[in-house]
């Protein structure tokens, strides 16, 4: 520790010298050019083109098969009177606001539990990750209908207590809730990331805290959570971006319709329907950019708020 402190003060004193600082910045700029080269090539060569194309298409009437016709702000005007758009926003916001915190809480809780060196850890971890392995295959679609159907497993279980459950995925009142549960259930990815993050926390800190007589909850709040905060932040930001774009689960459960009666019409699903089944790719592109603005705003808000609760070591 002391050696490190020494180095730190050394380097600090070094960077005080103006020319050295300048030289270092220069060196960083050059190194960045090398390290970021693949990313820059990818951004300019692969990512940017289609993005610009879709931005242009957002201002056109484009039916996929004929030339796009520039229509100015027509697509944007159309959004204001689009009831299905309003419905899809409602569905998506409900989904994001409920499922993202819920999934993070479950993932974090289980990661903390598992990190405490429990016997059989690798086995538990593998099994807990299983649902995330299954992906969105046809097989899973069949399973959900059988489990959550009117005569499915869930209702058979409820029947023991004399409760007659609905058709969980086929009733507009419960379909979205069921999808949220399914999403929370695939908490494997954030859990694994949390576990990897927990591994990064130096054990010495706990040792020192234990010597000082800090209790377990105190250690959690004074060591674990602060040091894990960059990872929590990561999972939150990416969880939000992913959930706003959520497509597959609703697609599978509703067979691509967003039904029953639009109760699972996720924004991305609506956009897909507009673009690919109604051949209105211009409008779909406009919707995509609306989504980008919404996600962007939420992400910016997150980054702004992170100043108050995310702690970096550097």
């Amino acid at each position: 520790m002391s050696a490190l402190g020494e180095f730190r003060s050394l380097s600090r004193s070094r960077s005080k010298a103006g020319s050295a600082d300048h030289r270092e910045k220069n060196r960083d700029n050059k190194a960045a050019a090398v390290f970021l080269a693949p990313w820059v090539i990818g951004l300019v060569g692969i990512t940017l083109g289609p993005m610009i194309a879709s931005l242009y298409l957002a201002f056109t009437d484009y039916n996929l098969l004929q030339d796009p016709q520039f229509t100015g702000l027509d697509n944007i005007r159309r959004m204001f009177s689009d009831e299905r758009l309003a419905q899809s926003l409602k569905v998506t916001f409900t989904y994001v606001i409920v499922s993202v915190p819920l999934q993070l809480a479950v993932a974090l809780g289980l990661a903390l539990l598992l990190d405490r060196g429990i016997r059989g850890l690798p086995l538990y971890r593998s099994i807990l990750y299983l649902p995330s392995l299954l992906g969105a295959s046809v097989a899973i679609a069949v399973l959900w209908r059988l489990v959550f159907g009117t005569e499915g497993l869930v209702n058979a279980f409820l029947a023991i207590f004399g409760i007659e459950g609905p058709g969980w995925v086929s009733d507009p009142d419960t379909a979205l809730g069921t999808i949220i549960i399914l999403h929370v259930w695939t908490f494997g990815a954030p859990m694994v990331i949390f576990l990897a993050g927990l591994r990064q926390i130096p054990r010495e800190l706990y040792e020192a805290a234990a010597t000082d007589g800090a209790s377990r909850p105190k250690q959690l709040f004074s060591i674990t959570l602060p040091l894990l905060s960059p990872i929590i932040f990561f999972n939150l930001v990416l969880g939000l971006i992913g959930s706003f774009q959520s497509f597959t689960q609703a697609y599978i459960v509703s067979n691509g319709t967003g039904g029953p009666s639009d109760s699972t019409l996720f924004f991305s699903l609506y956009l897909y329907q507009e673009g690919f089944t109604s051949f209105r790719m211009g409008y779909a592109s406009a919707l995509a950019w609306l989504l980008l603005i919404i996600i962007g705003a939420f992400t910016a808000l997150n980054f702004w708020a992170s100043k108050y609760w995310v702690f970096y070591n550097d």
Partner: peptide, 12 residues
């Protein structure tokens, strides 16, 4: 069948 069952078997 009931509404729930019909809704469930749509698009299958």
């Amino acid at each position: 069948p009931s509404v729930g069952e019909i809704s469930e078997t749509m698009n299958l």
